[in-house]
Design a protein around this nucleic acid. Structure first.
Lengths: 339, 339
DNA sequence: CTGAAAGCGCTTACAG
DNA sequence: CTGAAAGCGCTTACAG
C-alpha cells in the first residue's frame, strides 16, 4: 500500500467538481448541493481523503490546538485534570499540545515560545506560574491564557480554582471543633496561590474559633520535604494532635511518617486533613479527610473561559473560584458531639 | 500592544534581505553569512519575529508533532511515562499532541483519524490496542506507530515493554521460595499483553518449582473489580497466603481489602506482590514488593525506535522487551532462609 | 450553488 | 552566499 497523501484537488478531479466544492463539503456551515456533496463524499471515500488540518490552520489562522502546560504530575490531581480537560476540549473540536514544564530547570520560557510557534489558539497553564514577561508575549501574540488551579493578582488574567480560602476555612472549623491541644500546618510551596489561599482561609477560620496555627512547617508539596517537615514538627515537647496539610499528596506522606516512622496512630494520636480529594484519598490505607476540588466544574469553567476569549478578543478576563465540600473520613477525629 | 503576527517577509524588509535569507537564518544547517545572519537576527528581535511552525510543517511535510494516545491515567505508571516521553521528545525537537483514549466509549477510531488529520510524524500508543484496521490507516498515511507498554503478535509493528514474561517468572521464583500453602493470582484485563505475558511467566516459573496458581480471579486492572476479585478469592476454605497482582495499582487494592475489610495482616497472613514499581509502591503504607518497569529505558527505546522509523520509512520494526529487577519490600514474606 | 483565483507563511530547488 | 519564483493543501472572497 503506497503512502498516498490524497489532496482535495485529487478528490475534485475524481468527483468532477472544483477544489472549492470539495472544501465546502468538508467545511460545515458551507453551502453545497446534495448532489455535489454526494459525489464528493464518494470520491473522498474511494481515495481515503481527509482534510489536512495543517493546511486548514495555515489559511484560517486557527489551529484548533490548545497548548497545555503542566507540571507536578506526581500529584494525582493533575493527571485527572488533564484527562478531563482533554475530553472537554475534544468535544469542542480542539486538541491538546502538551508541554511538561520542567520545574527543576525552570525552562518554562523556552517551552512557551515553542507552544506559540505552533500557533495554538489558546493556552491553559496548570500549576505553573507564568511571569508577566511571558504573559506579555502571549498577549502580543493574541493568544489567550487561563490559569488552572492557580490564581494571580493581576486582574487581566483569567484563572479557575476551587475556593481555596473558603476551603481552608472549612478545615479550620472542622479541626477547631474537635478541640485539639496543638494545631499544626504543613505548607506547600510558598509561591503557589493555592498554598497561600488555603493557609489564609485556615488562619482566618482558626482565629474565628479563638485558635491559631501552633506549629508550621513547609513541605513544598513534595515527598521528601514533607517527610522532613513532619519529623521536625513532631520533634518538640508539645507536638500537634491535629495537622492540616495543604494538599493530599503531602497529607499521605504526613500519615505515613507519623504511623510508620514515629509510631503514632492516625487519627487517635494525631488527626490529619488534606486538600484535593484525589482518588487515593478514598483508599482505605489513608481514608483521608479532605476538601474536594470540584474538578469537573473547574474544567468546564476553564474550557468555557478560554473559548470565550478565543472567540472574542475583547472578552473580559474572569477569576473563578468554585466552592468544594469538606469530605470527612477516618483520618481525622470528628468534632466533639458528632458521630 | 497590537496583535501583530510578524512574518518573515517583514523581517526581510527591515533587514534589507530576501525572504529566503531570513528563512535560512532560522533553519539550522542552512547557509548564511555572518553579516546577513546578524542583520536578520536584529530585525527579528526588534519585530519579535518567530518562525511559524504551521507554515513550516505545511511546506516541509514534517509537523514535528507526535501523537500520543493514552488511557488509564489512574495507573500512576502512565503519567510518569507521559512526563518522560514528553521530555525525551522535546529534546529531539518534537512535541506531543495528546489524545485520551476514552476506553469507556471505545472511541479510539475517531481519535486516531483526528490525530492523522494533524499530520503527526509518528504515533505512540500507550496502553491502548490498535485494531489492524487502524494500523492499516496509519501505514497508508505513512505514519509510523510504536506501542508503549503493550506488545502485539504482528511482527510488523514496533513495541516497547518491560520483559513481562521474565518479570512474572521472577515473581514466581520469589513466591515459591517462601513456600506458601496456596498461591493466588489477580489477573489484569485479559486483552492486555502485559497481563498475558506476566501470567505466562508466572505460571512457567511456578511450574519450575513444582507449583501452580491455586486460585485465580480477574481484577481487570481496575479498583472495583479488584476489590471484588479479592473478596471472592478469600471467600473459600483454603484462601491463598501469597498473592501476585498483575500490576501495582491492583496490588494496592488487594492490600487494602485484605487489611481493612478482611482484617488480615500483610505480609504475616498474606504475602502480596505487584508489578510496575510506581512511586506509591515505596510509600510506607504499602511498601510493596514489585517488579520494576525500567521506565527510562522504555522511553528511550520508544523514542529511538519511532525516530528511526520516521527518518527511514524502511526501518524494520522492533519488538523490545527490557528486563526489570524484582524489588523486595515489606509487603511480601521473604523466601526461607533469607534475612 | 459553483468555479477561478488569490493567498495563508514558509522552504527549497534553481540560477547567479 | 543570495534572491526570485514556485509551491505545500487548503479556504475564502469574488463573480457568475
Amino acid at each position: 500500500m503506497p503512502e498516498t497523501k490524497v489532496t482535495s484537488a485529487q478528490v475534485a478531479t475524481l468527483a468532477g467538481v472544483s477544489q472549492s466544492a470539495v472544501s465546502r463539503v468538508f467545511t460545515n456551515g458551507a453551502s453545497a448541493s446534495e448532489k455535489t456533496s454526494k459525489k464528493v463524499r464518494e470520491a473522498a471515500l474511494k481515495l481515503g481523503y481527509r482534510p489536512n488540518n495543517i493546511a486548514r490552520a495555515m489559511v484560517s489562522g486557527k489551529s484548533r490546538m490548545i497548548g497545555l502546560v503542566v507540571a507536578y504530575l506526581e500529584n494525582q490531581f493533575y493527571p485527572q485534570a488533564v484527562e478531563k480537560l482533554s475530553a472537554a476540549l475534544q468535544d469542542q473540536g480542539y486538541h491538546i499540545l502538551i508541554f511538561m514544564a520542567n520545574t527543576a530547570t525552570g525552562k518554562i520560557d523556552d517551552v512557551l515560545d515553542e507552544i506559540l510557534d505552533y500557533q495554538v489558539d489558546g493556552i491553559i497553564a496548570a500549576s505553573v506560574a507564568l511571569s508577566s514577561h511571558l504573559l506579555d508575549r502571549c498577549q502580543s501574540a493574541g493568544v489567550p491564557v487561563v490559569l488552572f488551579n492557580r490564581s494571580q493578582d493581576k486582574r487581566t488574567l483569567s484563572s479557575v480554582t476551587s475556593d481555596n480560602v473558603r476551603g481552608g476555612h472549612k478545615v479550620a472549623e472542622f479541626i477547631a471543633a474537635s478541640q485539639p491541644a496543638q494545631i499544626g500546618y504543613i505548607a506547600g510551596w510558598e509561591g503557589a496561590s493555592t498554598q497561600r489561599d488555603r493557609e489564609q482561609g485556615f488562619v482566618q477560620g482558626l482565629a474565628n474559633a479563638g485558635r491559631q496555627i501552633d506549629v508550621r512547617e513547609v513541605g513544598n508539596f513534595h515527598k521528601d520535604s514533607t517527610r522532613a517537615a513532619t519529623l521536625a514538627m513532631f520533634d518538640r515537647a508539645t507536638p500537634p494532635d491535629a495537622v492540616f496539610a495543604a494538599n493530599d499528596h503531602m497529607a499521605f506522606v504526613v500519615m505515613d511518617t507519623l504511623r510508620f516512622e514515629l509510631g503514632l496512630s492516625v487519627p487517635n494520636d494525631v488527626s490529619v486533613v488534606g486538600y484535593d480529594d484525589v482518588p487515593t484519598a478514598a483508599w482505605l490505607s489513608y481514608d483521608l479527610t479532605t476538601v474536594r476540588q470540584p474538578a469537573n466544574q473547574m474544567v468546564a469553567q476553564t474550557v468555557q473561559t478560554l473559548l470565550a476569549q478565543i472567540n472574542d478578543a475583547n472578552a473580559s478576563p474572569r477569576q473563578i473560584a468554585i466552592d468544594g465540600p469538606l469530605i470527612v473520613r477516618g483520618s481525622a477525629r470528628r468534632p466533639q458531639g458528632s458521630k
